[in-house]
Design a protein around this nucleic acid. Sequence first.
DNA 1: TGACTATGACTGACTAGTCAGTCATAAATT
DNA 2: AATTTATGACTGACTAGTCAGTCATAGTCA
Lengths: 228, 228
Amino acid sequence: MARKSTKLAKPSAQSGGHASAATGEVPVSNRTARAMERRAAIVEAAMEEFIARGFAATRLDDIAKRAGVAKGTIYLHFKDKESMFEELVRIVIVPVVARLTALPPPTGSVRDLIEAFASNFLKEVIGTRRGDLVRLIVAEGPRFPAVADFYYREVVSRGIAAMRALIELGIARGEIRQKELARYPQILVAPAMIAVIWQSLFARHAPLDAQEMLRVHLDLIFGERRTT
Amino acid sequence: MARKSTKLAKPSAQSGGHASAATGEVPVSNRTARAMERRAAIVEAAMEEFIARGFAATRLDDIAKRAGVAKGTIYLHFKDKESMFEELVRIVIVPVVARLTALPPPTGSVRDLIEAFASNFLKEVIGTRRGDLVRLIVAEGPRFPAVADFYYREVVSRGIAAMRALIELGIARGEIRQKELARYPQILVAPAMIAVIWQSLFARHAPLDAQEMLRVHLDLIFGERRTT
DNA sequence: TGACTATGACTGACTAGTCAGTCATAAATT
DNA sequence: AATTTATGACTGACTAGTCAGTCATAGTCA
């Protein structure tokens, strides 16, 4: 098996190396930085491919091509396809949760708080690649208990708890009438989730103004808003 | 269910032949009936497998084994794996829609109507194999435009229209306050969809009393119900 | 500073295995 | 016997994962 190769010395050079030379940009210098960049490229490419084709139908060759690396390189960063998928979810989800979690500025009414939250969710998730990831988790969850567990633990249970706290505050302050709502924070969140799914599946058939829908939903919970 | 067939009798002759002779039961005699039975068994088996593993990861061999037929038999009924999946969705969805559609007995309040609808949905879909199918459609939809189109056309758009009509009636009768709700019937349906997904993904982590949640949601829309 | 060596990140041809779809043959039915 | 239906061994295309070999870079020395 002489791997062969050697191939033509492939002098021409263009490649192999990274273009660094020609353009002279050479921003990344040391190896580690380069490796991190590649890892990021792989994660990005993998997300695109998994979202587009689902786990089983995604080819590692395609991920490699899209990331601009050789297939073997993927295995320098991830154990196998499955754990790549699981890590991928973590890598992408964690920062989103962090950002979404870190923004409760304890000011104003509960409705304002929730509205701020919703507006962020709208911007960060609905209709974005991130939203597609959520759909992907719904899709692959049953086959990846690890992913479903992670998602439940890190996103769902936290989100539900946070919403419940907000609802209880709203009830205490008299902003929310329906006391039972605290038992099912899912109701508060449901339209946002539906919006995520709708954008992935039906936007082409019937576009949905998610922002407006969420506003109407909040009006339903808090009562129509007086024109400020 | 109904793995059925053949089995029982199954003398020893495991063989392919059908036991018909031995027991003399010969329930289904003519070919067409037999063929229909087999087709149904294939559909049933395929649904189980697709739900459990997703489209790409499902093996036709497994479907055949589960259905109790040879792989080749599948190809007597379906052109290929892809069109089998598409037909499957139609075959399973159509009767559900028919049943769900056919039940508006024009009696009582709008809330009663919606409640009847919800209770049916609860019984027929949430937490059942059918609910899993819905999740599967959400999962595979983007890769099967034909399925997404069909589902939008036959289920979503009809459902939205029906809900909108109901909401408008409720508004006209003074049962529903929020007039804007008619613009987003999705809000009315969202908790039910969330319940479907929740049961597939998170029931093991945190069971959800879907019926109670839907009741709370209707209370939110119609106002708390007086104890009848 | 320039030349020489050591390192390990990277490559991609290759292997072993999987699975959709076929078709020659067998079984059942007429 | 002729015809229709069912079977399952088989094929060929495809792909996850491997690993011998390459080469850009970091490190060392003069």
